[in-house]
Write a protein that binds this DNA or RNA. Structure first.
Lengths: 160, 160
DNA sequence: CGGAGTGTTTATAGATCTCTGAAAGTAAGC
DNA sequence: GCTTACTTTCAGAGATCTATAAACACTCCG
């Protein structure tokens, strides 16, 4: 059965496709490629060397990408007894974490609006626009946090 | 009262600050600057010429940015009787529109997961990761749409 | 019609960002 | 404690993106 090789190739293609999408939405290209490589991998973990080989990039690039991904909570370094190499793995619930990080952005938007209102006042041309903006981002911040909690609960109760 | 000039300067600073944040989250720098200039402006609308002057950029750059912003629904071209120039304005409810556009991205994520599962099957190392991903983005897509509707209703009923 | 005032397009220049390759740093095992 | 295996850092090369400026196109008005 050579279906295995074929599957791996197709998984890699899917991974690259998603990486492209992500890089178009602001994520760095190599960072996105590393992330999707781990996501679509049939291995539980991958070493830096694996990533170099699969993605055809230098160890320096892998190091940079990994150190960008870890603080976001998307991947984690996993201890590998008996190996001197670092192993990396896509984190469970990473998506919820990622979405949760967006709250920082939402808060930033709220702050920006607040700052503008402080200068212009609510009863001005800019003030009215900023007031709607502040209202929206306040709302979103609250509701998004609730939404993520809801999913976590739901997912945990469905599958343990 | 020279407070007016001072306020304008401070509003411009806030605008630039937000533009920087947005450009760090993937938006093109000039596009972001044009958007925030319109958002923080004390004028109801601005012409391309106004934007050139305020942002110190060429008319070509303004043209490009504007044509990137309009399809997203963040700004609109507004007819200006008695003037040959195009006037632009930040759109009402633009934020909700922007957030709504994110649904395309969410759908793309769901699709990517589905594609991977089709290749790998759910009962595989990659499949289990992708299954959680699919679940998450399916959930988010549904709930986000509902959330935006909820805000629209709430905002409209509060202020007409 | 024709011209003036604007908006758009495009080739080029310039800036920015990111990868690479190599040297330096770190830690495990003998 | 030294050697070896690996990772990180960093200067420089290369690629990518983006703004500019000038040519072109459109539109309104006389």
């Amino acid at each position: 059965m050579d279906g295995t090789d074929d599957k791996d190739v197709r998984l890699r293609e899917s991974a690259e496709k998603l990486a492209l999408t992500l890089s178009q939405s602001g994520m760095q290209k190599t960072t996105a490629r590393v992330m999707t490589a781990l996501l679509f991998s049939q291995q539980e973990t991958m070493t830096a060397g694996d990533l170099c080989e699969v993605l055809k990039i230098s160890s320096g690039a892998v190091s940079g990408a990994v150190n960008q991904l870890i603080p976001t909570g998307m991947i984690e370094r996993v201890p590998a007894p008996g190996s001197r190499r670092d192993h990396y793995r896509f984190r469970e619930h990473a998506w919820a974490t990622l979405m949760g990080n967006q709250n920082t952005l939402l808060a930033g938007m709220w702050d920006a609006a607040a700052e503008g209102i402080k200068v212009a006042g609510k009863e001005s041309v800019a003030g009215r626009r900023l007031d709607e903006m502040q209202d929206f981002y306040g709302f979103m911040q609250r509701e998004m946090a609730a939404l993520i909690d809801k999913w976590r609960e739901q997912y945990d109760s469905d599958r343990g």
